[in-house]
Design a protein around this nucleic acid. Structure first.
Length: 956
RNA sequence: GCAGGGGUGCCCGAGCCAGGUCAAAGGGGACAGGCUUAGGACCUGUUGGCGUAGGCCUACCAGGGUUCGAAUCCCUGCCCCUGCACCA
């Protein structure tokens, strides 16, 4: 049977037996969820890790006896699929290529992808198939889509709850917008300009003949250093009417501004040539500034008008230089006298710089002219420096001594409040091009709805919620902390996309991050609610079920059922673990806390969160849009899902980035094969069929190597269990697979010379069956299919998925036994080393063990606990452990340091340990090995070297 | 810039919070040996340097410090990664 066939067989059996369908019972519950997928593409191995972690944990906890609920749903709300459907309909080549070649959608299916609903249906059913192929222990009865009418009712309830608590408000909001499509656009809708931010600029009104020229700036504090204005004489300028004023801006700026301002219209063309040489009035200093020509002024950016601060802006400084050199241009506009008079003005004092940092930057970066590419670097560097470390200079009396960042905020406020300034948005980088080919703009959406994450009492409540949670790994708690404080109001409504309408303002759709914050509660009651009629699920229903409002519900659902639903919710809730990706801390996960703390009482708040790292493919970042992915379905096909699961869990801890490497995958595959063959080897040694269910380990084994293996496996169980409790899948596997295999390898190697002995052999078989019994169960959460198969084949009872998790037996873990084995292997290594140095093949090897008095001194040294030679000697003499005081002194000195290097666990009967291992030692060294209690034969006096744990060796 | 996380042997990566058992787990790769008709697989060993007795020297980004003792604690510097949203 191939791996896949075998895996499918068990998946079917699990399904038929319904062992992963969880209903409330008397056991302790454990409820965990992982972010439900947005099915806009095929599932790749990165997703594979995300969903395998909770499955491993769920399986582990189930074996420990918990009633575990692990559900799954489909987050189909949002805009991306709308865009995808449109692009498919338009036969956009890039999109077609990705879906054909990366997501591997067959031609005939692709044809139907012009329907967004079809896309999410297609991929969610594909996701489900793959999840089942991966063997996930999901309760599929609870599956749902976020556009199911009953779910939408639930979402309506939640948003109304928040609104009733005063946590929803109305306002305006800037977004990326495509004028061609007449729609807001997300990153995935863009041809160019992915991830580009929106900047807020301050417009400052400089009066000229009753109208205003309105340069835009990031640095309004530099208004005190203005020497002139810049216009680009080759650009079209216009005069517009806005809010009863007249502004002069570039034609392109108008195209942007029209999306941001109300009541705005063009009233005239303006010839920039005629403005040059004229004067404007500074609204703050009331000085007059001349208008000058400059080619660096970009009509597309902001208002297309720039004010000049040559003291602090490298561009302005160099443009002024250029102009001074360009006598032709100066003559054309008759500017010579005025320009020669212009001197930079200082505004900001910056450590390590003089009066005019812009000038120094121009020199430092060797900027030649205003079209030099290095100009941008110079500008950026100075901008950062002045923002971070600059202070407003003393002669600017209004703001003297203030840090630049602070002064900027205050000046901005003053300008805007007094009407001398205004606000405008623009992209941080350009171009930003929609997939339709249109140029995007920043648009202000009015009447937008916001969730008030800035609300202080709400933040405080959320912080409380966080503080009672377990966070894995603990290091990211600081991130949560930070985001909760940093988060401001969130625009929670959208114009486009699939989703639930705002109940009180149905022109808006609830944004998809806001409809997926408390849906774990929906899972808890999903088996019931899915059968109900959405019309019966009004707010009072949810109030009753989730918040236990006694009197409220008056609808059609009968009392008894209602109680059942409510009880089920109370059984599963609160959520024990929420798993999600690292990059969602800032929104999804934090919203999850916000919404729970606002809606639910404390005892229903989430108990824990686990965050995931990213996936790499042979060292490179995985990305569907770049085609750099391996589909999970294909990985399963080539390797089998147990191997895929094992690799994903073993190569990194969940919160670390994992790297899918074909080479390492091979290693994992071999390891798993070794494991599945192990049972066969045990059976062979045993000489007859193994029956795990009737097996019992009888009595203490005679040979220490067997005791050793029993001790080792119990250590591995202990460590693996602890690791899994903390979601450390990699560590758990290190213990339960890799290190345990090493132990077993060592064991096989060690016992081999003694296998002739039948009694010993049966002891070995008994030991190994014990190991096998534990080991299969230890591996089950990771590789459930192969474990079911082995369990079934070797007489385990029932499904191993339901078998009890192995308990480690603390009494079997024995430090002295471990130490004894270390002494033997250490001895073997030392013999080899000496052999190597002597460079000869020995005939006989004599081993001498340490005399009694040395052990006593070790006991004393262990008691003292520090390398304190004086005290060790004192105590040794007092106890009279040995006649020769000189020898004691020498020994004490020698071991003082030695003691800190070994883990002293007390006296060990080295003589019998070594005697037990003579066959092994002799095979390893290729010589006869003799061990002495007393040095009756010691021609070179080597026996004196013997230390506890380190017998002396004489080779001849 | 703000916030968070890091720099370990050929590569990946544990260890660091609770300093000594650390020349530093485990995996990958490389080399050697065993097994085998051969290859593969499997097992064993080697993979910083030196060494005619199990040892010594140098090492965990760099430089200082604390300590009997530091990969681990403290300070300084250099370098790298991630997030900063309205997008799931």
């Amino acid at each position: 049977m191939t791996d896949i066939k075998l895996e499918e067989k068990w998946q079917r059996k699990w399904q038929d037996a319904r062992i992963f369908q969880s209903d409330p019972d008397e056991r302790e519950k454990l409820f965990l969820t992982v972010a439900y997928p947005y099915p806009s593409g095929a599932m790749h191995i990165g997703h594979g890790r995300t969903y395998t972690v909770p499955d491993v944990y769920a399986r582990f906890k189930r074996m420990q006896g918990y009633n575990v609920l692990f559900p799954m749903g489909w987050h189909v709300t949002g805009a991306p699929v709308i865009g995808i459907a449109k692009r498919i309909a338009r036969q956009d080549p890039w999109t077609l290529n990705i879906y054909k070649n990366v997501h591997k959608v067959p031609e005939e299916e692709l044809a139907r992808f012009s329907d967004a609903n079809y896309i999410v249906d297609y991929f969610s059913s594909q996701y489900k198939d793959v999840m089942q192929q991966m063997g996930y222990s999901i309760d599929w009865r609870r599956e749902f889509k976020t556009i199911d009418p009953t779910y939408q009712k639930f979402i309506e309830w939640q948003i109304c709850k928040l609104r009733a608590k005063g946590l929803v408000r109305k306002g305006a909001h800037p977004v990326k917008y495509c004028p061609e499509c007449q729609n807001p656009v997300g990153d995935h809708d863009l041809l160019e300009g992915e991830g580009v931010g929106i900047n807020e600029l301050t417009l400052i009104k400089f009066e000229i003949d009753g109208a205003y020229l309105v340069p835009a700036t990031f640095r309004p504090e530099t208004i005190y250093g203005v020497t002139n204005l810049w216009l680009n004489p080759d650009v079209n300028y216009i005069k517009i009417e806005i809010q009863g004023e007249e502004w002069i801006i570039s034609r392109e700026a108008y195209d942007n501004l029209v999306h941001q301002k109300q009541d705005i219209k063009i009233i005239a063309e303006v010839d920039p040539q005629k403005l040059i040489g004229k004067y404007v009035k500074n609204p703050i200093t009331h000085e007059e500034h001349i208008i000058l020509p400059a080619s660096f002024v970009d009509p597309e950016y902001a208002s297309g008008v720039v004010y000049s601060v040559p003291g602090h802006a490298p561009a302005d400084y160099i443009a002024l230089q250029d102009l001074k050199k360009d006598s032709e241009l100066m003559k054309k506009y008759d500017l010579e006298d005025a320009v020669q008079k212009i001197r930079p003005l200082n505004v900001i004092t910056l450590k390590d710089f003089g009066e005019f940092p812009a000038e120094e930057m121009i020199q430092k970066f060797r900027v030649e002219n205003q079209d030099d590419t290095r100009l941008k670097e110079a500008t950026n560097e100075l901008y950062k420096l002045e923002h971070a470390k600059g202070v407003i200079s003393e002669h600017i009396t209004d703001y003297a001594g203030l840090p630049v960042a602070q002064a900027r905020d205050e000046i901005t406020k003053e300008l805007r409040d007094s009407g001398r300034g205004d606000i405008m948005y623009d992209f941080a980088e350009r171009p930003v091009i929609c997939r339709c080919g249109g140029k995007c703009v920043v648009r202000i959406l009015e009447d937008q709805w916001f969730l008030k994450y800035s609300d202080t009492p709400w933040k405080e409540l959320t912080m409380k919620c966080l503080s009672q949670m377990e966070i894995v790994p603990e290091e990211v708690r600081a991130n949560f902390d930070y985001y909760i404080n940093w988060l401001h109001d969130w625009a929670c409504s959208r114009r486009i996309g699939l989703g639930t309408k705002l109940p009180w303002d149905p022109q808006w759709i609830i944004e998809p991050l806001s409809d997926s914050t408390i849906y774990m509660a929906y899972y808890a009651i999903a088996t019931h609610i899915k059968k109900m009629n959405a019309a019966d699920l009004d707010d009072s229903f949810f109030d009753k079920v989730f918040l236990d409002k006694n009197d409220s519900y008056t609808g059609k659902i009968d009392e008894e059922l209602l109680k059942k639903v409510k009880d089920e919710f109370n059984y599963w809730y609160p959520l024990n673990w929420r798993l999600s990706a690292k990059d969602l801390i800032g929104n999804h996960l934090t919203f999850h806390l916000f919404h729970h703390s606002a809606i639910f009482p404390k005892n229903k708040w989430p108990k824990g969160a686990v965050v995931f790292g990213m996936g790499l493919l042979e060292g490179n970042k995985m990305s569907s849009s770049k085609g750099n992915v391996i589909l999970l379905s294909e990985a399963i096909e080539t390797h089998g899902s147990d191997v895929v699961r094992l690799f994903l869990m073993a190569s990194a801890e969940p919160w670390q980035d994992f790297d899918w490497r074909e080479n390492e995958l091979k290693g994992i595959k071999k390891r798993l094969e070794w494991f599945s063959e192990f049972a066969g080897r045990v059976e062979e040694l045993n000489g007859s069929k193994i029956d795990l269910k009737s097996y019992k380990l009888n009595s203490d084994p005679e040979k220490s190597i067997n005791t050793w293996l029993l001790s080792q496996i119990n250590i591995r169980v202990r460590e693996a269990t602890q690791a899994l409790e903390g979601f450390q899948t990699r560590k758990a596997l290190q213990e339960s697979l890799f290190l345990l295999k090493k132990d077993v390898d060592h064991y096989f190697y060690r016992i081999e010379p003694d296998l002739e002995d039948e009694k010993f052999k049966s002891e070995v078989a008994a030991t190994l069956i014990y190991v096998l019994n534990i080991w299969i169960r230890l591996m089950t959460p990771f590789t459930p299919h192969i474990c079911e198969e082995l369990w079934n084949k070797h007489g385990g009872s029932g499904f191993i998925s339901e078998a009890p998790w192995p308990q480690y037996d603390e009494t079997v873990i024995n430090e002295k036994v471990q130490k004894a084995e270390e002494i033997v292997t250490g001895l073997s290594e030392d013999i080899n080393e000496i052999k190597k140095i002597l460079n000869k093949e020995p005939e006989k090897i004599h081993i001498y063990i340490a005399p009694e008095w040395k052990w006593k001194i070790f006991d004393i040294a262990a008691e003292v606990g520090k390398p304190d030679i004086g005290r060790i000697m004192q105590e040794a003499i007092k106890q009279d452990v040995h006649q020769d005081k000189k020898e004691i002194a020498g020994f004490a000195k020698k071991i003082a340091r030695e003691m800190t290097k070994i883990n002293y666990v007390g006296k060990i009967d080295e003589y019998s340990v070594i005697k037990d291992s003579l066959e092994f030692l002799s095979r390893e060294s290729g010589a006869e090995v003799l061990v002495y209690k007393e040095p009756t034969y010691d021609p070179e006096g080597k026996s004196g070297n013997a230390l506890p744990y380190k017998p002396a060796i004489y080779i001849e």
